[in-house]
Design a protein around this nucleic acid. Structure first.
Length: 435
RNA sequence: GGCCGCGUAGCUCAGCUGGUAGAGCAGGUGACUGUUAAUCACCGGGUCACAGGUUCGAGUCCUGUCGCGGUCGCCA
């Protein structure tokens, strides 16, 4: 309770023992034992057992208990009592009870196991359950930590367009009609705009939704996901990786410090997160290929790392690792050629431990106009769409580097979640557009 | 999209070598003053995804379609 929130919430109750309070919420469990009844209610800040004794409440309140069903919204008044048997250490001795909104008898989500398809169809209700509440609080903590990290370091947040002309990477684009301009496409990266902004503001980051029409059915893909893309003028690839490891370690530390209760609700082994310390190991692509061949992988120089390769490579480390300087064929056109080995580009993938795979893709950007133009032509990209991007190399080109962090993948790793679909409030996937 | 698997009550599932549909939970009624996904008794609840085929007979076997999941590729 505060000046701007006069409503008492369940989370406030440990400080209110002995007080009579009125609070509102929804029914999650009902138990009755003749002349004593128990309502377990939630309000988004916590869960509370309310005890209704027939002798101690008005007739109307006792009868109101009889009408309660799962997810009825209600207002209860009573005395806060310390009770060591309860999760939050308190329970409420009810003196009055009023239904705000009744809930139909067929509320679909029960306190038991459900299949994933059913849960996704009922995402609007699934979000009310304790595990989902914990994940969303951790997601929110990470989002806030991202803003704090960059704000404290003097970065400017830049909001890049979602409707764009055909520009970005190779993955599939969602398109929509755009007046007389032909098709517009939903942005699959803000990076190119981020590069323009870096030349204006020095250090920037973007934080926004991105869209990929990839027909991917995996635990690590969504068609709509949130990405954080910093871009720093005059950073080279080494400074870029230092920023990445400092950033990711900051996010993990923040979740462990401020959301330990939620991590424990999820059954997360917090010691694995506490083991995440900088610096993260750097593994050159060429070394990675040799290591993987030594472990029995069929990978050849030039191939991208497969999911199995990533898992094999990461198994020896407790922290995320960088795999750097991939062959240029495996990577996007805008990455800078490696002066020490022109077959490769100055880039890095950050692979999370415990098999969570790639959470960051980063690179130093190609700052030479002619080399960039040649790459655009090699890839068969529409040159006119990239003319403004090429201009950045004509008018005061600059060494710069940046990266993209996938929010849901990061949340999934920190939460120990088996699938990123539960790490965003309303997931969008190839076969799922609602709710 | 490739490969593999699944589809039976509102939910989670069982249903054997083919013989006409089951449990738990949820819901209803009742009992119980300390329960923690309470317990106990009784009750209602089914186009076995859809279409075709084999068979005296198909939830079960075969073919096709649809839906979903897992995995791979692509990437964050």
């Amino acid at each position: 309770m505060s000046a701007t929130d006069p409503i008492i919430r369940i989370a406030d109750l440990p400080d209110q023992v002995g007080q009579t309070v009125t609070l509102s919420g929804w029914v999650t469990h009902l138990r009755s034992s003749g002349k004593i009844a128990f309502i377990v209610m939630r309000d988004g800040t916590g869960v509370l057992q309310c005890v209704v004794a027939k002798k101690e409440v008005p007739e109307a309140a006792w009868e109101a208990f009889g009408t309660l069903t799962l997810e009825t919204s209600l207002q209860v008044t009573g005395v806060v009592r310390a009770d060591a048997r309860q999760a939050g250490g308190v329970e409420l001795g009810v003196s009055a009870l009023a239904v705000i909104g009744p809930s139909a008898l067929d509320y679909p989500i029960q306190p038991k196991e459900h299949g994933i398809d059913f849960l996704l169809d009922h995402r609007h209700f699934w979000l009310r359950t304790p595990r989902q509440v914990a994940i969303m609080r951790i997601r929110n903590e990470i989002e806030q930590a991202i803003h704090d990290f960059f704000y404290e370091r003097g970065f400017l947040r830049v909001d890049t367009p979602i409707l764009t002309a055909a520009i970005g990477e190779r993955a599939g684009l969602f398109s929509t009609e755009y007046f007389d301009e032909g098709n517009a496409y939903l942005a699959q990266t803000g990076q190119l705009y981020g590069e323009a902004a870096a030349a204006a503001f020095g250090k920037i980051y973007t934080f926004g939704p991105t869209f990929r029409a990839e027909k991917s059915k995996t635990r690590r893909h969504l068609t709509e996901f949130w990405m954080i893309e910093p871009e720093v003028a005059f950073n080279d690839t080494h400074a870029n990786m230092r920023l990445q490891e400092e950033f990711v370690a900051f996010l993990v530390r923040r979740a462990v410090e401020r959301r330990r209760a939620e991590l424990e609700e999820l059954g997360r082994d917090v010691s694995k997160l506490e083991a995440v310390q900088t610096p993260f190991p750097r593994v050159e692509y060429g070394e990675a290929v040799k290591t993987l061949q030594g472990k029995g992988s069929a990978i050849q120089w030039g191939d991208d790392l497969g999911a199995e390769d990533e898992a094999l490579l990461v198994e020896d480390y407790a922290t995320p690792i960088f795999v750097c300087n991939y062959p240029k064929e495996a990577k996007a056109f805008y990455m800078k050629e490696n002066p020490d080995d022109p077959r490769t580009v100055l880039c890095d993938d950050m692979l999370a431990p415990e098999g969570y795979g790639e959470i960051i893709g980063g690179s130093q950007r190609e700052d030479d106009h002619d080399k960039l133009l040649a790459r655009i032509r090699e890839e068969g990209l529409p040159e006119d769409a990239y003319s403004w991007y090429l201009d950045l190399r004509k008018y005061g080109t600059f060494v710069h580097a940046g990266f993209g962090l996938g929010l849901e993948r990061t949340v999934a790793w920190i939460c120990g979640s088996p699938h990123i679909r539960e790490c965003i409030p309303f997931p969008r996937m190839m076969h799922r557009l609602r709710p």
